[in-house]
Design a protein around this nucleic acid. Structure first.
Lengths: 227, 227
DNA sequence: AAAAGTAATTATGAATTCAGTATTCACGAT
DNA sequence: ATCGTGAATACTGAATTCATAATTACTTTT
């Protein structure tokens, strides 16, 4: 692990800790030892503690008065709440995108879409996920709303550790592809209301939640393990 | 100004600075002097700087490397982007609220609604705004989604300094009241799709944006003054 | 042996100190 | 007179130190 050397130390540290959480190297509920992280990153406590405060604001960890920090336990309800919100934001991004998107941007997304279909036909899950994400990000970017993008990005970060780790069932996968066909059509017609509706109803998120519900302790507020 | 005495210093300081920004005591674009704020609050630089990092994460200020912090300049576009987002979140809150809300909660909101109508008839603007806000907050609470509530609260904080400061025109006001009549009806029918749609289209936010557009420099990205 | 109380240790909260960068002001050159 | 260069000053970035709260270990008592 390369030590951190310079510049905007607190932000750098915050990102690195975020990665540790995402990859499960810091377990949910686990006490975060300041000293341990300081040694790991070769940084003093000042920027590290600033990073912890920022991460708490971003919802990745929680601070207990006089008792340090711990990684947030993702409960089923928290994940569901976050996904509900993300679905609404995707819907908005669709509406806005149709207002502002250029022909060039549409054809770029069309290319991504066709590539994704190719991956689907070959059942290449990882490449499929990657292009899928690019499509959603492109629409988000076309929405031309920085606050929206920032907010979505933050929410996504919170649930990253339980995303992209589930296997699709064939049925859900084909439904998701159908959704994308409809999305593409709505986008090319620049039908914002329709695209928004499709994105809000887009099953991806709900699939994952459903999958989680099957995989994990179905208890509503019980913590769930990392992927 | 009472000095800060104890407990969760950084959070306390962040809230206080937030108030200063909201009330316009710190002007947008203005350099924030750490030393000055330290003296004002009777706090050392450590918790103060932690507070600044948090406020930057929350989008109230921005940090310039080696050049300190400044209050974010609210441009017309930023406000519009934020309002678009808040409208979407309100819509979601309406949909979710209809799923979870109890009869008791509905009648509580009905009471608020009737009180608000009373204030409208008397043209009591401030009490009207206050009850109006309580209604929206009640629906948000009934949605039973902590992440949604937290996100909405954060966005609201960013634009607080330009809200609640505009005078309603009679036409917009009566339209807003009509919207609320429809909202109330949808809520009592527990028609989530409808309530969501009404809330998304609810004119309040757009009114304010329109008002701002008339009051301020119409230049899209130009900064706007505090209320 | 178990439990409770106290001392010791460790970790967090905050202040201070040290270092590096930007800004300002003065002086000189064109 | 204006612009450019450089030294002095002020401020931010980060490390260290000091204070206080929490946890642990140990002792003592029942």
């Amino acid at each position: 692990m390369t030590k951190i050397l310079q510049r905007n130390l607190y932000r750098e540290v915050a990102d690195r800790i975020g990665e540790l959480i995402e990859h499960g190297e810091l377990s949910p509920g686990e006490r975060i030892s300041e000293k341990q992280l300081c040694d790991r990153f070769g940084v003093s406590r000042t920027p590290l503690r600033e990073a912890l405060k920022v991460l708490a604001t971003e919802g990745l960890i929680e601070l207990l008065p006089n008792r340090g920090a711990r990684v947030v336990q993702l409960t089923f309800k928290k994940v569901k709440d976050t996904y509900d919100l993300m679905a609404a934001l995707e819907g908005l991004s669709g509406e806005l995108a149709c207002e502002y998107i250029s022909d060039a941007e549409i054809s770029a997304i069309r290319k991504l879409h066709d590539t994704m279909l190719e991956h689907y036909r070959n059942r290449d899950l990882l490449p499929y996920f990657k292009v899928n994400r690019q499509i959603h990000e492109s629409i988000l970017a076309a929405a031309n709303n920085d606050v929206l993008q920032e907010t979505y990005s933050n929410l996504n970060q919170r649930v990253k550790r339980v995303r992209y780790s589930k296997k699709m069932t064939e049925r859900y996968w084909s439904q998701a592809v159908k959704d994308h066909e409809n999305m593409m059509a709505a986008l090319e017609k620049r039908d914002g209301a329709l695209l928004g509706q499709i994105l809000r109803d887009h099953l991806c998120n709900k699939i994952e939640v459903a999958t989680l519900a099957g995989v994990i302790n179905p208890d509503y507020d019980k913590s769930i393990a990392n992927g």
